[in-house]
Computed example of a mutant assay.
Amino acid sequence: MRLLHTSDWHLGRSFHRAGLLDAQKAFIDHLVTVVREHEVDAVLVAGDVYDRAVPPLAAVELFDDALHRLAELGVPTVMISGNHDSARRLGVGAGLIGTAGVHLRTDPSGCATPVLLSDAHGDVACYGLPYLEPALVKDQLGVTKTGHEAVVAAAMDRVRADLATRPEGTRSVVLAHAFVTGGEPSDSERDITVGGVAAVPAGVFDGVDYAALGHLHGCQTITERVRYSGSPLAYSFSEADHRKSIWLVDLGPRGEITAERIDCPVPRPLARIRGRLEDLLEDERLERHTGSWVEATLTDPTRPAEPMTRLGARFPHTISLVFEPERAPEDPAASYARRLEGRSDQQIAEDFVAHVRGSGPDESERSVLRQAFDDVRTEEALAG
C-alpha cells in the first residue's frame, strides 16, 4: 500500500509580513498531482491543518477545496487535528465527510477506532491520535500522571489492544501530533511543554508498522518506522536550510517500509545574512540573495540610519531585521534577547524571581509557576 504522509499545512499563516496563501494553494495543487501521478492509495495528514483555532475565511476555502479534490480522486484521506487546530471546529461534520472518503480524527475517544484500508495483501488499520493536551484528556484516557508521554502512551495502549483483536497479518499505521524525543525543532512551532516535559519517546509507538508524525516542521526520520514529514513551506528563518518535502511510504505485505521524499514547491528561497550594514550592501557574494526572502542581522556597534530602506534597495524582499551589535560579552548593553535564547518560559520566570528578590524559587514555588503555565496552556486549548 502506498501512503502519502504530510502535516503542518498551517493554512492561513503568513511569513513575517508576506502572505503565503498563493504558496499554500500551489502546495495543494502539488499534493493532488503527486497523489494522482504516483498512484497513492491513502493520504495521511498529521495535524496543524490550520494555523489557528479560528482561521481566516480564505484558509477555510482552501481547505474545502483540498477536501473536494482529494475526494474526487477516490483516494481515502485520514486527517487529525494538531495543537494549532480547534479540534471541535475541524471535526464538524466528520461523520458526513467520512462517507466521501475523508476521515477526520479530532476526538481522543476515537483513537482506537481505525479507518480500515485494504489492498491485495489484506487490511491496514489506520489509527488517528489527535493532539492530546494532557490536562484536558488525562481523565478521559484514565491517566493519573499529567504529561505528554503518559497520555500518548495510554492512547497507544488502546490502539494496540484494538489491533490485537484484528485478524492476524493486519498491518497498522498511526497518525500522531507530538514532540518525539530525537526530533529537531525549529522556531515556528508553538511550545507544547506541560509540567516541564514535552518530549515523548519513540518507543511509545512500538507495535505498529508506521507512525506518521506531525508538529515538528523539519522532515526527519526518528526510526525507520517513526517519521516526521515536516511542514510543506518554511514558516521561520530557522528553516532556511530545510528541504521541504512529503513522504511517499510503501507499506509491504508483511509491514516492510520503504520511504521516498518528494520535494514541495518553494515559493521563494530564504537567506540569512549577517554583518555590518555597509559590508552587506557591498559584498558581491550576496548577489544570489536578491530574489530571496532575507533576514538581515546587523552587527554595527551603533544602529545605522534607515537600515531597512537601504537593505531593501539591494535585497527587495528583506522582511526581517535583527540588531546584534558587536560588543564585549560582559557589556551590560548586550542583547536581552540573546540572554533569553534557548530558555523555557519556566526558566525565564525563575530567573525573574531571582532577580527581584535575590534568590531563586524553592521547589514549592517552582511547582506554582509550573502549574500557572500549564493552566494558561489549558485555557488556550479550551478557547480553541
Rank of each mutant, 00 (worst) to 15 (best):
A53G: 14
G214F: 08
A120H: 09
V102A: 01
H317I: 08
V204G: 01
G218H: 07
H177P: 02
H317E: 15
T290R: 15
E260G: 09
A26H: 11
P114V: 09
G255D: 09
D279S: 11
H5M: 00
L104D: 00
H215D: 12
V173H: 12
A240Q: 13
A305G: 11
L175R: 00
V368L: 14
P56W: 06
L163D: 03
D241I: 00
P301R: 12
M156N: 00
R357A: 09
G218A: 14
A59S: 03
A100R: 14
I246M: 15
L132N: 01
T290N: 05
A26L: 08
D65N: 09
H217E: 09
D362L: 10
L311V: 05
A305E: 13
D48A: 04
T299M: 06
R243S: 12
H84A: 07
D123P: 01
L251K: 09
L20R: 15
A349N: 01
R370L: 06
R2G: 07
V137D: 04
L62K: 08
M1Y: 10
S359V: 15
S81P: 00
D283F: 04
I262H: 14
E168C: 03
S292M: 06
A153C: 00
H5F: 02
L104M: 02
T113W: 09
G384D: 07
Q140T: 11
R261E: 15
P253S: 15
D362V: 12
T181S: 14
R52Q: 13
T146W: 04
G95H: 05
F315E: 07
G110I: 02
T290D: 08
M156P: 03
R13Q: 10
L136Q: 05
T299H: 06
D283T: 08
P325H: 10
R13N: 03
Y50K: 02
P114H: 05
H242N: 14
D51W: 07
R52L: 06
D51H: 15
R52N: 11
T378N: 01
V137Y: 09
R276D: 13
L251W: 06
P130C: 01
N83D: 10
A125D: 11
V102E: 05
F179V: 08
A42W: 12
G169S: 08
A349G: 03
K244T: 07
G312Q: 11
G230I: 12
L321D: 01
A178K: 05
D29W: 10
Q140C: 05
A212I: 11
G169Y: 04
A354D: 05
E379V: 08
G183S: 10
V180T: 11
A240V: 15
